[in-house]
Simulated scan of single mutants.
Amino acid sequence: MNPKSVISCALAVGLTLSSQVWAQEKGPVTNLPLPRFVSMKANEGNVRRGPSMTHRIDWVFKRKDVPLEITAEHGHWRRVRDREGAGGWVHYSLLSGVRTVLVEKDMLNLLSKPEQGAIPVARLELGVIARVEKCDIDWCRLSADGYKGWAVKANLWGVGPTEILD
Rank of each mutant, 00 (worst) to 15 (best):
A86P: 00
F61H: 06
E104W: 01
P33G: 12
R36A: 01
G149S: 09
R99K: 15
M1T: 08
I7F: 02
G88W: 04
M53T: 15
A72L: 09
V101N: 12
R63W: 11
L126M: 10
G146N: 09
W89C: 08
L32Y: 09
I164V: 12
V90E: 03
V90A: 03
H76G: 13
V132Q: 10
S52F: 07
V98H: 11
V152D: 14
G160N: 11
K4H: 10
W22Q: 09
V159I: 14
K41L: 12
R78C: 08
V66H: 10
R36I: 02
A118K: 06
G97I: 06
T30G: 01
A151I: 05
L108H: 02
R141F: 09
G85D: 00
V66I: 15
S93T: 13
N43T: 09
M40C: 09
A154W: 00
G149T: 10
I137F: 11
G14Q: 04
D136I: 03
V13I: 10
R49V: 05
S96M: 07
R99L: 15
L142H: 04
N31H: 15
K64W: 03
K62F: 01
M1A: 08
H55K: 01
Q116I: 14
E104N: 08
M1N: 03
K62W: 01
D145I: 09
A118C: 03
V13C: 06
K134G: 06
V132E: 09
R99V: 00
C135P: 01
G45N: 02
L108W: 02
K113Y: 11
E84W: 07
V159M: 05
L32K: 14
T100N: 14
P161T: 10
L110W: 12
G14F: 02
V103F: 11
V21W: 05
D106V: 06
C140I: 09
R36P: 00
Y92E: 13
V47L: 11
W157D: 13
P35F: 02
L34Q: 05
L94V: 12
A23H: 06
D166Y: 12
L32S: 10
I57G: 03
S39I: 07
R49G: 00
R78D: 01
H55E: 03
G85E: 00
Y147N: 15
E44Y: 03
P33W: 08
W22S: 11
H76Q: 15
G149Q: 08
I164P: 00
L124G: 06
K113C: 01
T162M: 11
A86E: 07
R48D: 08
R131W: 02
T30V: 03
F61K: 05
R63G: 01
G158P: 04
F37C: 07
C9D: 10
M40N: 06
W59V: 00
L15A: 15
K148A: 08
Q20S: 11
W77V: 05
W22G: 07
P3Q: 07
P35N: 05
D58C: 02
N46K: 14
P161W: 06
A151C: 12
V21F: 08
K64G: 01
M107H: 15
S93K: 09
P51S: 07
I57V: 15
D166Q: 14
R79H: 11
K105I: 12
C9M: 08
V152F: 10
L94T: 12
H76L: 14
L108F: 03
G27W: 07
G75S: 05
K113I: 01
P120Q: 09
I137L: 12
E44I: 04
K113M: 11
W89Y: 10
P67V: 13
D136N: 12
D82Q: 02
Y92V: 08
